[in-house]
Simulated scan of single mutants.
Amino acid sequence: MARFAVGDVQGCLAELLLLLDRMGFVAGRDTLYLVGDLVNRGPDSAGVLRWARKHDNAVRIVLGNHDLSLLALSAGIGKARQGDTMASVLEAKDASDLIEWLRLQPLLLTLDDALIVHAGLWPGWEATQAADLAAEVQQQLGRPDWRSGLAEMYGNQPASWDDTLDGWARWRFVVNAMTRMRFVDQSGALQLKFKGELNDAPAGLYAWFDWPQRVASPRIVCGHWSALGLRVRKDLVALDTGCIWGGALTGIDLDSGRLFQVAARQAYQSLLTA
């Protein structure tokens, strides 16, 4: 049995199926981990959700920021942005089934030798604390009144973690760290505005995985940061290689470390819509 992880699919169903064929993935034998952002910006978000839901005996996912945006839009919160392609889900006949399945998915998966999360792990958290915090958010999304809580999800504050945070201030930080984070400052506060490459980062900012005071954790497998690109090291596997921008969809065999890629059929989005 193999364990594969794949970066941000974002509606690129054709590339996903080709990549799985190239990896030799067999549902029922192997396990596939999708690192969030299954939907949006690509051509077939509904198709990706249907495929993952159909194979959920073999596919495990974590929620990304675009997946949470889809949940919010379905709840009547917020509005679509330029370049969004989530209408294929919201207008589908099976929209309610897809949304119901998606909202019950976690922010974090804990394996024996790795953590699966969309953007990353706030570098001051130990793995067990992060898992507990992710479970708190999942519990909120699992409540019958989950829609009302999503309105509290948006915003960049609080930027700094404090164990005494409670309610949606606490959960908003968790959501931002696990689905939106790229950089932190010297104090560890989230810096969510800069989205570019490491070499272009303003002085005083650190990639979350290079923060000098980072707490040791298992290997983290993530996506989210297409400007970072593929990065594989002992403590990190970053898999977003910008399929929607005309890059590639990337997967990895978590046991052997073997990498797989499929080039995007086309650039589905322009950087002007980023």
Score class of each variant (00 low, 15 high):
Leu228Arg: 11
Met23Tyr: 00
Asp44Glu: 11
Ser45Val: 09
Ile61Leu: 14
Gly149His: 04
Gly76Lys: 03
Ala130Gln: 03
Ser148Leu: 09
Phe260Gly: 08
Lys93Ile: 01
Pro212Ser: 09
Leu102Trp: 02
Ala263Asn: 13
Tyr33Asn: 01
Ala5Met: 08
Gly7Gln: 02
Val175Phe: 08
Leu102Pro: 01
Met86Asn: 15
Ile252Thr: 02
Thr179Trp: 04
Val232Met: 07
Ala169Ser: 14
Arg50Phe: 05
Val48Asn: 02
Leu198Glu: 15
Leu20Asn: 04
Phe173Tyr: 08
Trp245Pro: 01
Arg214Asn: 05
Gly142Glu: 02
Thr179Arg: 06
Cys243Ser: 05
Arg22Asn: 12
Asp97Val: 13
Ala72Leu: 10
Arg41Gln: 07
Asp235Gly: 11
Ser160His: 12
Glu91Thr: 13
Leu190Lys: 08
Ser69Lys: 15
Ala2Asn: 14
Asp253Ser: 06
Thr164His: 12
Lys54Ala: 15
Ala189Thr: 02
Trp51Phe: 15
Asp166Met: 10
Arg182Thr: 05
Gln129Asn: 05
Asp255Ala: 13
Val232Tyr: 00
Leu38Glu: 04
Gly42Glu: 03
Ser160Arg: 14
Leu102His: 05
Ser256Thr: 15
Leu165Ala: 09
Val89Ala: 07
Asp163His: 10
Ala127Cys: 01
Gln129Gly: 00
Trp171Arg: 15
Lys193Glu: 14
Asp30Gly: 05
Glu15Thr: 09
Lys79Tyr: 10
Phe173Met: 10
Gly247Thr: 09
Gly246Glu: 07
Ser217Ile: 00
Gln138Thr: 13
Leu49Ser: 01
Leu259Met: 13
Gln213His: 13
Pro212Asn: 09
Ala189Leu: 02
Gly246Arg: 03
Ala238Val: 01
Leu107Gly: 03
Ala92Ser: 13
His66Glu: 08
